[in-house]
Amino acid sequence: MKQALKAGLNAATISIVLRTAPEIINAIKYLIENGEVDEEQFKKIGFAALKGGSEGFVRGTVSAAITTACKSGVLGAALKSVDPTVIGAVTVLVMDTVKNSYKVATGKMTRYEMSNELMRTMFTTTCSLALGATSQAFIEVPVVGYMIGSFVGSLVGSFTYSVAYKPAISFCVDTGFTLFGLVNQDYVLPEDVIREIGIDVFDYEQLEYDKFKPEGFQFSTFTPDKFEPEKIDMTFLRRGVIGINEIGFIE
């Protein structure tokens, strides 16, 4: 427990630095450009420190506790040689999945958003572990080499995922493929198109309160009649992205 709490405090410290550093830089930049300090930026720094520190402490403590239990043989002899970095990555992945599952259950996130976030996190974590182990072999300084490689791997993984995501969604748009249930194919026509073809659309009743309008005087004006020839309007629909991992009809 002492080792786990110590690791949790170290992780919390690192998380606070990583979360607050960008906000502090933005605050300094705003001070240089405007000659004053923005109160909202200090609030962001405080909330970033609180959130980053708490999440880092929990993740670091849990990861260290599981690693210590594996190394000591409590969880079996087969797990004595397990890589601590793998345990940390799996712990973070599981905790993020639990958090996102709660958001889905409370309606703050859709199932397709959660699946997209899970795939992105898994791909980024894999790249981070791979480059972290590779850089540690070249940079023999303990921990530092792995941290540098892990950081670079996360950037490469995030960029690669974004590049590969676009052609995958384009393929789903053209073929109607659901990517094994990860993409929602919505075939409902847009509301404005439904109205245009003459179908009544049901609207919920809304409360319209009376507004006071003062009486006004307007001069009489001459308005000539205008002739407008009849024309045929045509609306062309195509399939496109209407949400995260969701494809539907758009004009």
Rank of each mutant, 00 (worst) to 15 (best):
V92T: 13
L93Q: 12
L93S: 11
V94T: 12
M95A: 06
M95Q: 14
D96T: 09
D96S: 12
D96Q: 12
D96Y: 13
T97D: 02
T97K: 04
T97S: 14
V98Y: 06
V98I: 15
V98D: 08
V98L: 15
N100R: 15
N100W: 08
N100Q: 10
N100C: 11
S101A: 14
K103S: 12
V104K: 04
V104D: 06
V104T: 10
T106M: 08
G107F: 10
G107P: 08
G107M: 09
K108E: 14
K108Y: 11
K108N: 14
K108M: 12
M109L: 13
M109K: 14
M109N: 05
T110C: 07
T110F: 09
T110S: 15
Y112D: 08
Y112T: 13
E113Y: 11
M114S: 14
S115N: 14
S115Y: 15
N116F: 09
N116C: 10
N116P: 09
N116I: 03
N116K: 15
E117L: 15
E117S: 15
L118I: 14
L118T: 13
R120V: 12
T121I: 11
M122R: 12
M122D: 01
M122P: 02
M122E: 07
M122G: 14
F123R: 02
T124W: 04
T124P: 11
T125S: 13
T126A: 10
C127K: 04
C127G: 15
S128R: 03
S128V: 06
S128C: 08
A130K: 02
A130Q: 06
L131Y: 00
G132A: 01
G132W: 00
A133K: 10
A133E: 06
A133N: 08
A133L: 09
T134P: 01
T134Q: 06
S135E: 02
S135T: 09
Q136V: 04
Q136N: 07
Q136R: 05
A137Y: 02
F138M: 06
I139W: 03
I139S: 03
E140H: 05
V141I: 09
V141C: 00
P142W: 02
V143C: 10
V144R: 05
G145N: 04
G145Q: 05
Y146Q: 02
Y146S: 02
M147E: 10
M147N: 11
M147I: 08
I148F: 09
G149E: 01
G149Q: 03
G149N: 01
S150G: 11
S150T: 06
S150Y: 11
S150I: 00
S150M: 08
F151C: 09
V152P: 03
V152H: 00
G153M: 03
G153L: 00
G153Q: 02
G153N: 03
S154F: 07
S154H: 03
S154P: 01
L155S: 15
V156F: 10
